[in-house]
Design a protein around this nucleic acid. Structure first.
Lengths: 224, 224
DNA sequence: TCTCCCGAAATCGTATACGATCTGTATGAG
DNA sequence: CTCATACAGATCGTATACGATTTCGGGAGA
């Protein structure tokens, strides 16, 4: 009688997505339809639909007649994801740059200062990663191509799912990251050219990726 | 006893996707679950799943309790799609460039010559668009980031769905397009830098978009 | 003891059924 | 004649049911 505005399939999608990004569902965990259906008090049909939707976002892997598992940590996949994110995020940042207000700029600076403080004293990778996302998110507040924005969000979700915060593995990267953020803000404030900002934002992300790759060039086995 | 390897949901997905890209389903057409289910000799459940998958690719629009329609030609959506494609295709082209063999290069040249001939004599927009896709596809033959490659393919599917071949509206664009192709091939053959190739490939696509936008300069002005 | 095969449990895939919601049309009041 | 309302048809959303497939463990035979 009351159309909540969100169908059960949507609820399920939201629930599982939340579960994956929050870490409640760990990489490799099985996602059994009937179990989730019971948890949410619905039948398996909407759950199934939700899982399939997550599959197209590469957040879960599906094997026919077997079931779904949360996409695991694969260094190769991590690389692909980060590279794609560098591409989309870099473009988005450049595109939004002219629309960023001073107010927003100040807000981003504040977040970056928090990150700097975090590095200095009591370094916590998860908190740092969260602030990192907030920082970049602030620069996207204004309208742009929603398709590309969507791709950025998918990338973030995927990273969250991978639980592969580079800062956990390569803490030293955090220092450079903060510095690059400041550099990026300066470029935006000065109204730098599109290509300059895009390049800076893209390389910022690629540098993080490279820090990870270099770090793992030696330790062959990766286990969590 | 049917390790067909192809579930009914997959069949339905393939069928509808094919129907959209081939033009059998026109933009704006309604996609009624039960109808399609009957056509394929299955129940509505797999069809429903297929439609939802197509929805996440923005190939169909879905309204709750109403149904799905093939995504129509919306100049704004066209702009978003082309811009995203410029971004992903440009990067892909640059990334694959060092791996392109002389053989492939020749093949691409051949396709481009076909396009040139087509412009000169009996111009057919659909055929031209098809060759255009073949041309770019040839440059992607070698491995690269599959995520980004997937995004390129999604973009192509979407364009096919929109049936919005710019060349139908702005035939003059075809001439420039062929010239830009040749330029791009030269850059690749000469082993130009990543950023140069990316920029060329991206602008190639953006130029096509701008040709369309200028031609339809009745709506809001969109600047880059 | 080891290997192979069979059967049960778990889980997915799909069909069918039915209630919920939307859309369009007809009807009646003003 | 116009507009609001009610009803009917179409279509979707979800639950339930059942067949299909995989996985895994245990027993028979070598």
């Amino acid at each position: 009688m009351e159309p909540n505005g969100l169908s059960k399939a949507d609820q399920a999608h939201q629930h599982v997505l939340e579960g994956i990004t929050s870490g409640h569902y760990q990489p490799g965990d099985r996602l059994v339809l009937s179990t989730i259906a019971n948890e949410l008090g619905m039948s398996v049909v909407p759950v199934r639909e939700a899982i399939r939707r997550l599959q197209t976002d590469d957040l879960v892997q599906f094997q026919r007649n077997v079931g779904a598992t949360v996409t695991g940590i694969d260094p190769v996949e991590y690389r692909y994801t980060m590279e794609t994110l560098a591409l989309t995020e870099g473009y988005s940042t450049a595109q939004c740059a002219p629309l960023v207000t001073n107010e927003t700029l100040e807000k981003a600076r504040g977040i970056n200062e928090q990150m700097r403080a975090l590095v200095a004293q009591d370094f916590a990778p998860e908190k740092f990663t969260e602030l990192n996302e907030q920082f970049h998110s602030a620069l996207f507040e204004h309208h742009q191509n929603p398709h590309i924005l969507d791709l950025v969000h998918r990338g973030w979700n995927r990273l969250a799912a991978l639980r592969s915060s580079t800062f956990s593995f390569v803490p030293s990267r955090a220092i450079s990251s903060v510095a690059e953020h400041e550099q990026l803000l300066t470029l935006i404030a000065d109204g730098a050219e599109f290509s300059v900002i895009e390049s800076a934002a893209r390389n910022h992300r690629l540098n993080t990726l490279n820090a990870y790759l270099n770090h793992h060039a030696k330790s062959t086995t990766i286990d969590f």
